[in-house]
Design a protein around this nucleic acid. Sequence first.
DNA 1: CAGTGGTCTAGACCACTAT
DNA 2: TAGTGGTCTAGACCACTGA
Lengths: 256, 256
Amino acid sequence: MSEQGSFNLDQAEIDKNSVIPIYYQLAKFFEKQIRQRNLLPGEALPTETEIASHFGISRMTVRRAISELVAAGMVYAQKGKGTFVAMPKLDNIVFDLNNFYEEIKQKGMKPNSKLLEAKIVRSDELLSKRLGIPLNTRCLFFRIVITANDEPLAYERKYTVYAKQKPILESELKDPSLSSLAAAHSDSLPVSSKKVLMVSRTTEEESLILGVSRGTPVFLMVQTLYDLERKPIAWGLSIFRGDRYKLTSYDGWYDE
Amino acid sequence: MSEQGSFNLDQAEIDKNSVIPIYYQLAKFFEKQIRQRNLLPGEALPTETEIASHFGISRMTVRRAISELVAAGMVYAQKGKGTFVAMPKLDNIVFDLNNFYEEIKQKGMKPNSKLLEAKIVRSDELLSKRLGIPLNTRCLFFRIVITANDEPLAYERKYTVYAKQKPILESELKDPSLSSLAAAHSDSLPVSSKKVLMVSRTTEEESLILGVSRGTPVFLMVQTLYDLERKPIAWGLSIFRGDRYKLTSYDGWYDE
DNA sequence: CAGTGGTCTAGACCACTAT
DNA sequence: TAGTGGTCTAGACCACTGA
């Protein structure tokens, strides 16, 4: 008796001779069944032995498939009971602004970054404190504006210790990630990072560069990079226009 | 010849008769070695067969251990070459404000939430549009202030369709998550969620409630919950004081 | 070519759950 | 007790890498 809603193992098309691994095909099958609501939250999946014998595959392969779903948070397993479709976690608040460029592109806009300034500076008291370095240490200083369709979106200022005498390459400006800059120009490798997101208002300078009126609300992100010895080696400050930028996060399995 | 830095398989204390699974002990061992910098980014782990024979365990068990590290992003495997310690991803910008209460507690403060108002309203045009319901539908309306050490931190307004006639319980206010409210009071189950984080300035009302001057920059989070048919069933708006709240994100493996 | 990780099998024993 | 998921084994074959 396997009548859980409209779910049926026979709907699965598992090709044992495919180049695509069996466990992957199987995981995708269950994922699809859950997304299409043929398996509803709380319902039980067939048992591992049942699935294995149905497809004539090893139980270990079935387990590999199910563990993918467990990792994705779509099902949970209970020892001695069975495996069940999970309730989507809807109160996870996770904002991801990984692909700044990608996000802009996805909105059909043309991202670009413009270097305003790049120079070697001697660290003043504040910078020395932030980077944990002696006064007057040589540092690389960058100012960058990120635009979408030629409209300024973000303004970034970044500092990193300038130990090597390597020149600053044009290519480094295309995707101005602080960690690659620090890796290239500082003495040591960045291995950990701290980022803080705050709200703020634009200063006079920021307003001019972003083309907004003074005091406009903005996202302010401060990033500090550390080396193996837990010493800061780079520091950056990014201002994102609040009237143009927002973070979006989706939860749940039902996209359509 | 196994002389990768100060790393040595003999340092591992694997108890094959422990209740703790072997793969778990092994994964923790490698994790520790990486965190303690005995294995550095780019360095190779011993091969799977080497590890297996060293401890007298099956290669599958070794693979299970390593797959934990791969999932954690600490190592990556290359077919035909070997398994290597990864570079920490430092430009992932992932902000997580899951445990609002926990975060406040961790700072040694006393979190609390106070119900300002809870009533049944008839949906006006705007709310009807947001929730995709007819005009004048009965909705549950909440207003909550979250405080830390009696200082207001956030102000939340939440709406959900009020289909059942269940009374509003006091306990529902302790951890006022929109999804549990919607599950309890609307007709259907929330299965997906959209959250948008923006910056804004306080209105007159918000300023009074949060005890800040008008126009103070704030985080503004809007959450919409959807049911299985992709219809919105709840809507909430949260204002976080920008002068008291910030989002922090750490990357990398080296905590100390 | 030998060595690596990726997949898969057909068993096994265990702890746990429900009856 | 019977059935479940969790762990583990000792093999196997494959595709890929580098010399």
